[in-house]
């Protein structure tokens, strides 16, 4: 399960970086270049966007590490499960509550399988 989890995390990270980079982050950059905006705003948005990319890479590495070191895997899987569960819940609710439809923020389609896989891995490591 650790390997499946690592694959899901890596795939989601690639989608965030390559697909989201073109369709989400690039328009953001264009928007702020046209508007006189404080450096802090532009920089922080870039920081959180690229930080999430790195977060996925880090979680992929951790899932792989947990797979090869079973004696400490439980804590790692628990940590990954809860972190991704938080994004799964936010993605599920945000689109519905703010924009009126669940598929407005379809990222929950990625985060729920990751969170479930991490919980299954956590249960298996107990």
């Amino acid at each position: 399960m650790g390997l499946i989890l690592a694959f899901l995390l890596f795939a989601t990270g690639c989608i965030h970086h390559f697909r989201g980079g073109g369709s989400i982050w690039a328009p953001m950059l264009v928007q702020w270049q046209d508007v006189k905006q404080k450096k802090l705003v532009k920089g922080t948005l870039g920081f959180i966007w690229h930080g999430v990319t790195l977060w996925f890479i880090g979680m992929t590495g951790l899932a792989l590490y947990a797979y090869v070191t079973p004696h400490i895997a439980q804590g790692i899987y628990l940590s990954l499960a809860i972190q991704n569960l938080s994004f799964a819940i936010i993605a599920s609710l945000y689109g519905k509550l703010v924009y009126g439809r669940f598929l407005a923020s379809p990222q929950w389609l990625f985060f729920w399988p990751i969170a479930v896989a991490a919980f299954v891995a956590y249960s298996g490591a107990m």
């Binding site: 989400i24 905006q37 972190q83 703010v98 923020s105």
Partner: peptide, 30 residues
């Protein structure tokens, strides 16, 4: 108020604002 609000109130396409909103609020919970 300083970072997220300008994005939320901007004229960016909805999909961009939704995705950035998810990143912003997701990080809060994270």
């Amino acid at each position: 108020p300083e970072i997220w609000l300008p994005v939320y109130e901007s004229s960016l396409p909805q999909v961009v604002r939704i995705s950035m909103g998810l990143v912003w609020h997701g990080l809060t919970v994270l």
